[in-house]
Computed example of a mutant assay.
Amino acid sequence: MTVELFAGIPVTDRPAALGWYEKLLGRPPAFLPNDTEAVWELAEHRYVYIEVSPEHAGHAMHTLFLDDLDAFVSEAAARGIQPVTRETYDNGVRKIIYRDPDGNEFGVGGAPQ
């Protein structure tokens, strides 16, 4: 089975969200399909996008699992993005939660240290 992913995040203010996600992800979007969206390719055929949709903004919840969680958190901090919470589950898996300007949850997780 081939898997492609487009995970959407509703926002109220495209320029504000665009700047925030550029800082979080460390790069500009891969493409801008129109005046209301911006798309980042996280891995081959796996995308996350913002879309102006004020009535739905603030309710998204996404989590990525990364090989090097600590490097991602460090690099995001260097770009001015700080997590709102850090969790460690009983099995040692860690999850770092960020919130964009609308309150959408963008989590990153990783294996135990």
Rank of each mutant, 00 (worst) to 15 (best):
D13R: 03
D13G: 01
K95C: 05
P33D: 01
H62R: 03
I9E: 12
H59N: 13
G80Q: 07
V11E: 01
P112T: 03
D70I: 03
P83C: 05
P54G: 08
I96L: 04
E105H: 07
A43D: 15
T12G: 14
A111V: 09
T36S: 07
A76M: 09
A78C: 10
M61I: 13
V73D: 06
A43P: 07
V11G: 02
A71G: 10
V73N: 07
H45Y: 09
P33W: 00
L64G: 10
A7Q: 14
P101R: 07
D68R: 10
V3K: 15
D35K: 10
E41C: 03
E37H: 01
T2D: 11
L5E: 11
L64A: 13
L66W: 04
V84F: 11
V39M: 00
W20I: 04
G110Q: 07
F31M: 04
R27S: 15
A43L: 09
M1A: 11
I50E: 07
H62Y: 06
V3P: 03
A57M: 09
G26C: 01
R94F: 04
S74V: 05
E44I: 05
L64W: 11
V108I: 10
L25N: 02
P101S: 09
L18P: 01
N34G: 13
A17P: 04
Y47I: 02
F72P: 09
F31N: 01
P83K: 06
F106I: 13
N104I: 01
A71R: 15
A16H: 02
W40L: 02
E55I: 10
E37L: 02
N104Y: 01
Y47E: 09
S74K: 14
L64K: 04
L42G: 03
